[in-house]
Computed example of a mutant assay.
Amino acid sequence: MTVRLQSASEKILERKEEIAHFITVEQNKKFPDQLESLSNELLPMRIELVKVYAKALALEDVESEQKIKEWGIETGEECARIGTTLDAMLSEVPHYRNFIGEVLKEYAIEQGMGIEELYEMISKLDYIMNLVVYYFSVPYVDYQTNLLEQSRKEILELSAPVVPIMDGVAVLPLIGTIDTYRAKLIMEESLHQSVNLNLNYFVIDLSGVPIVDTFVIQQLFQIIEALKLVGVEARISGIKPEIALSVVKLETNFGQANTYSTLKRALADLVNMS
């Protein structure tokens, strides 16, 4: 069987360009907006994948899995990088199965092989295809996940902008909801910028925060205490009546920080001090 698998592998390799071209045409019909413009980049990858299928067919399982893994790490990430979708890429699998299956069937007829031998070859092809799907998908998803996390981090960093107003004074205008991750980021950014800008006063404006609950107040208290440790006095503006009521109910020293109903009043107070 090993000799026949090697010969079948060679038959597939002889038609690698034909198979890759056929898949490119079919995929461009199915995903014209997404894949047609990427044809020049994807065609060589498809030719390489046909080669991977063909060579893996003639190798022992352990060796073929290692080769597929190496291919998947490189190609999965590259396909994600150039902007394909996982749905489009995985939709190619049946094309490879059908086309390569036909090559194996033609070879089996040519060699006078029995049903059992053909079944063994098709079963190995299915095994290889399962490995291809797995080792392609993992790095693809990892790349997309890392990209999304990086984008989320960049968006959150923009959501905590420290704005220098005058020497020794900066404002952090907060907009939107504050969750655990964002609270941690605000803490880090407040401390970093306070030291970096050599601040004396740091105004945290809550005017754009729709909900200031117990969690948010506790986080603000921690930020105030942390800033105090680096020699910066925190002041809170945008205090609405409902925020004031929530603060009073908590047993914290949050009330020791200077608070203002508006940012304008907080800045006016600082100007008068200078």
Rank of each mutant, 00 (worst) to 15 (best):
F136S: 03
G76D: 14
I211Q: 06
E14T: 09
A244N: 09
T24Q: 04
Y260W: 10
I122Q: 13
N28P: 06
G176C: 09
L185A: 07
L131D: 13
C79Q: 15
E63F: 03
L13Q: 08
I204C: 07
V171F: 09
E41V: 04
N200W: 02
G101K: 07
Y96M: 09
R182E: 13
S7W: 03
I224E: 12
V93K: 02
Q111F: 04
H192D: 14
L5R: 10
L245E: 15
N130I: 01
L86W: 02
A266E: 14
V3G: 01
A183N: 10
F215C: 04
E10W: 01
I12V: 10
I128Y: 03
R81Q: 13
G112I: 11
L174G: 08
S246E: 15
E116N: 12
D213P: 06
E41Q: 10
G76L: 08
L250P: 11
L263M: 15
N253C: 02
L42Y: 01
L245T: 13
V271L: 15
I186Y: 06
A234R: 01
K30R: 12
R182V: 08
V141H: 00
D87Y: 08
S123M: 09
M121R: 02
L220T: 09
A226W: 09
F221W: 06
L220N: 07
E48T: 04
A8F: 12
I12Y: 02
D87C: 06
E117M: 08
E14G: 00
R15S: 05
E242P: 08
A58Y: 04
I175L: 14
P44N: 00
N40C: 00
Y96H: 11
P164S: 04
N130E: 15
S246I: 12
D126E: 14
K11Y: 03
I12P: 06
I155K: 00
M45V: 03
L118G: 03
E116H: 10
E41H: 03
T85S: 13
V232L: 05
E78A: 10
S194I: 13
M89F: 04
K124C: 04
I155E: 08
P32D: 11
E117N: 06
K30M: 03
Q150F: 01
P44Y: 00
K105Y: 11
S151M: 09
M1T: 06
E41K: 03
I109Q: 10
T214L: 02
T84Y: 05
L125Y: 05
T259Q: 13
P161E: 14
R81K: 15
Y119D: 15
F22C: 03
Y107D: 14
E242R: 01
L131V: 02
I224C: 08
Y127I: 04
F202H: 07
C79R: 12
I204Q: 07
L131I: 05
N196A: 12
I109M: 11
K249S: 14
Y107F: 15
S261C: 08
A56G: 05
L199Y: 06
N253H: 13
S207T: 15
V50Y: 01
L118S: 06
L13E: 11
E106N: 15
K240L: 11
K153M: 07
